[in-house]
């Protein structure tokens, strides 16, 4: 995609369908697919993509596993004015999961109490 096409597509929301290229625009998409690890952000980089051109990318990229990103506490779509839905769904699921586990624990504790009570009654007899 040329510069003029790009700026045009940003002005009016036309349907864009691009050929994948290892150009700066789709570099992140390429890395994400080609590497067996996720990609995460940090630090400016300069990339020599073709021998002829040296492209400075204002992209901050670091390669790391998704797990490592999570360890580092990177949750990039949180607190965004546009809001990514996916995250809120996850939170709900997490909450549901926690609630389910709590209920399971409570019922188990309840059962144990019953057993203890049963034993006490028996002892009393």
């Amino acid at each position: 995609m040329t510069e003029s096409q790009r700026s045009e597509s940003q002005r009016s929301p036309m349907f864009v369908s691009n050929r994948p290229q290892s150009s700066p625009e789709s570099l992140a998409d390429v890395l994400e697919r080609v590497l067996d690890k996720g990609i995460v952000i940090v630090g400016d980089i300069q990339v020599r993509l073709l021998d002829i051109e040296l492209l400075t990318i204002k992209v901050r990229l670091m390669v790391a596993s998704v797990d490592k990103a999570r360890e580092m506490g990177i949750n990039w779509w949180e607190g965004d004015p546009f809001v990514s839905n996916i995250e809120s769904e996850e939170k709900n699921e997490e909450e549901l999961d926690l609630r389910r586990r709590l209920e399971a624990l409570e019922s188990r504790v309840g059962e144990q109490n019953e057993i203890v009570e049963g034993e006490t009654t028996r002892e009393r007899r």
Partner: peptide, 20 residues
């Protein structure tokens, strides 16, 4: 170098270009 973007990016790009 596996996690060094400067080293990795041209390698990944060339790998992709062949596959593309």
């Amino acid at each position: 170098h596996g996690e060094d973007t400067q080293w990795l990016t041209p390698v990944a790009a060339a790998h992709h270009d062949v596959l593309q």
